[in-house]
């Protein structure tokens, strides 16, 4: 009997050790990525300071240079993509929540599901065939379209979830005012849920910012200047993808600086999303 309980106690400790070390390993990966990007990019940050956000990347093997033009193109591409993605995604989310039974809502639901399951590199291929080939150049517009398609399912799903979280009593009150249904939904329920819609847009932004595969063939790789909407462009994540395997130390360090920036932006955005979405439940 004593032996049996000893065996149980030992097994319990073993289980604790195994599961805790697995959890620790995952946390360590995250912590290591943050730490190494800070360490590796330190020389860049120390050398440039705020000029990191202004100067273009240096020549291979030369000075570090900065991320200026890449940040401009990233901001333009991501905001354009999320803007268009929201113009489509938010109404679709409202449709899926408020006209639940209609055939259009069901079709939209199926389409969203399909798009969200497609590997994001395939979105890039399709936009390449549809936009880049006819335009004869990769462009900021093509990249924005790719990111718009990638962010769309997240924006629509989050909008639908946040509307669905409005308590029944609020709905009853809105409908009991005698307004037609479209007014009750668009003038009362949606504005009441402005926070939920903002969360959806932010979530879409966070997704779009981090994606690399969709812009691989659509953005081009113009890191040294911003050439307008229909000229070749780039994004932060694309710069990392191109500079990471580079043999030049200055480019690799610049990629680490971009990693640090991207990690910081993602953590800020995703914690904002989490804080906002927690507040939705009224």
């Amino acid at each position: 009997m004593r032996l049996h309980s000893l065996k149980r106690a030992v097994l319990d400790r073993v289980f604790l050790a195994v599961t805790a070390s697995a959890t620790l390993a995952l946390l360590a990966v995250g912590a290591f990525i943050v730490a190494i990007s800070a360490v590796e990019s330190f020389p860049v940050i120390a050398a440039l300071g705020p000029a990191l956000f202004i100067e273009p990347p240096g020549l291979p093997g030369g000075e570090f240079g900065g991320l200026g033009p890449v940040l401009v193109s990233t901001a333009v591409i991501v905001s354009l993509g999320v803007l268009v993605g929201s113009l489509i995604g938010v109404p679709v989310g409202i449709l899926m929540s408020e006209c639940r039974g209609s055939w259009l809502a069901r079709a939209a639901d199926a389409a969203l599901q399909a798009i969200s399951e497609i590997p994001s590199v395939v979105v890039g291929l399709v936009v390449f065939v549809v936009l880049v080939l006819p335009m004869r150049t990769p462009s900021a517009i093509a990249a924005a379209v790719s990111l718009c398609i990638t962010a769309l399912p997240y924006i629509a799903a989050q909008t639908r979830e946040s509307l669905a979280a409005i308590p029944l009593s609020y709905r009853e009150a809105a409908f009991s005012l005698g307004l037609p249904r479209w007014k009750a939904v668009l003038r009362l329920l949606v504005p009441m849920n402005a926070r939920g819609v903002a969360t959806a847009v932010l979530l879409g932004g966070a997704r779009a910012l981090g994606e690399t595969a969709p812009v691989l063939f659509t953005a081009g790789a113009a890191f040294s200047a911003f050439y307008g909407l229909i000229g070749p462009s780039s994004t932060l994540s694309l710069l990392i993808f191109y500079f990471a395997p580079s043999p030049y130390e200055n480019w690799r360090r610049l990629a680490w600086a971009a990693v640090l920036l991207l990690v910081a932006l993602t953590i800020v955005l995703s914690s904002a999303v989490r804080r906002l979405s927690r507040g939705v439940k009224m």
């Binding site: 990966v29 990525i33 910012l209 981090g210 994540s237 993808f241 953590i267």
Partner: peptide, 14 residues
């Protein structure tokens, strides 16, 4: 949750 939200290219570089 934050680690899950990190961009894939960051893991690629790591």
């Amino acid at each position: 949750y934050s680690i899950a939200a990190l961009p894939t290219v960051v893991f690629g570089m790591w």
